[in-house]
C-alpha cells in the first residue's frame, strides 16, 4: 500500500501523467477541429467533397485505432518522414477522433431547428454568418455531453501510445514494474492517476455545460423570471 502512494506521488509518474494529459488534450482538440470540418463538408459541401468525407469516416471508424497508430509510426519513416513517437501518436489519435467527432457534430447540426436557418436567411444572414452566429452556438450546446464522453474515451485510448514507446502513464507503470515486479503497486498508482484525470474532465465538462446553459446564465444576471411572474 505504501508503495502505491510512493509511486503515485513520484516525479516519474507525475511527468508520465503530464505526457498522457498532453497527448489526450492535443489529440482531442485536433480531432474536434477535424470533426467539425468533416461535418461542415458533409452538411453542405459539394458532392465530391462529401464522398471524400464519407470515405474518410468509413476508413477511420472501420479499422482499429491501434492499427492506425502502428501504421503512422512505421510507415511514415518509410516515406522519409521521421517524427517523434509522441507526434505519431497525436496524428493517429486525432485522425481517428475526427471520424467520430464528425458524426457527433453532424448530429448536433441536424438538431438545430430548420426554422432557425430560415429566420436567419430572411434577416439577410449569408450561410457562413448563419453558421457562425445562429447554428454553431446552438450545436455546441448539443454536442458538449457526447464530446465529454469522447474526451474520457480519448484519455483511455491514449494508453495505446505506449506500444509505440511514448513514455505515457501506462508505459511508465509497466517499465517500473519490469524492474521490481511490483505490478500491483505500479498499476494501481497508474489507475489512480487515470481516475483523477477522468474526474477532472467530467467536472470540467459539467462546468462548461452550465456556462453554456441560458437558463443558468439568465439566473446569474439575477432575472429569475418564470412565465407566471411576467
Amino acid at each position: 500500500m505504501s508503495n502505491v502512494l510512493e509511486y503515485t506521488f513520484s516525479s516519474t509518474f507525475l511527468v508520465a501523467t503530464w505526457k498522457t494529459l498532453l497527448l489526450t488534450v492535443i489529440s482531442m482538440v485536433l480531432g474536434i477541429v477535424g470533426g467539425l470540418l468533416l461535418a461542415l463538408v458533409k452538411n453542405g459541401g459539394p458532392a465530391p467533397a462529401r464522398w471524400l468525407a464519407d470515405a474518410y469516416i468509413w476508413l477511420f471508424r472501420g479499422t482499429p485505432v491501434l492499427l492506425q497508430l502502428i501504421f503512422v509510426f512505421n510507415v511514415l519513416p518509410l516515406w522519409g518522414i521521421t517524427l517523434e513517437a509522441f507526434t505519431c501518436a497525436v496524428i493517429a489519435l486525432a485522425l481517428n477522433e475526427a471520424a467520430y467527432m464528425a458524426e457527433i457534430v453532424r448530429g448536433g447540426l441536424m438538431g438545430v431547428d430548420r426554422g432557425q436557418r430560415t429566420a436567419a436567411h430572411m434577416l439577410g444572414l449569408n450561410p457562413v454568418q448563419t453558421m457562425r452566429w445562429v447554428v454553431l452556438p446552438q450545436t455546441l450546446r448539443l454536442v458538449l455531453p457526447p464530446t465529454g464522453n469522447q474526451l474520457i474515451g480519448m484519455l483511455k485510448t491514449s494508453a495505446l501510445a505506449s506500444v509505440v514507446s511514448v513514455q505515457d502513464l501506462l508505459l511508465t507503470a509497466q517499465r517500473t514494474a519490469s524492474a521490481n515486479f511490483d505490478y500491483v503497486g505500479t498499476l494501481s498508482a497508474a489507475a489512480i492517476h487515470y481516475l483523477v484525470l477522468t474526474t477532472i474532465f467530467t467536472l470540467a465538462v459539467r462546468a462548461l455545460e452550465r456556462r453554456l446553459d441560458v437558463d443558468v446564465r439568465a439566473r446569474k444576471q439575477g432575472q429569475i423570471l418564470t412565465r407566471e411572474t411576467l
Binding site: G115, T118, H121, R141
Partner: peptide
Amino acid sequence: AQASGAIGMVFQQFNLFPH
C-alpha cells in the same frame, strides 16, 4: 437567392434565437 433583409418574415413558431 440570398436575402438582403428587405423582406422580413414573422413565423408561426416565432423562431427566435434561443441562445
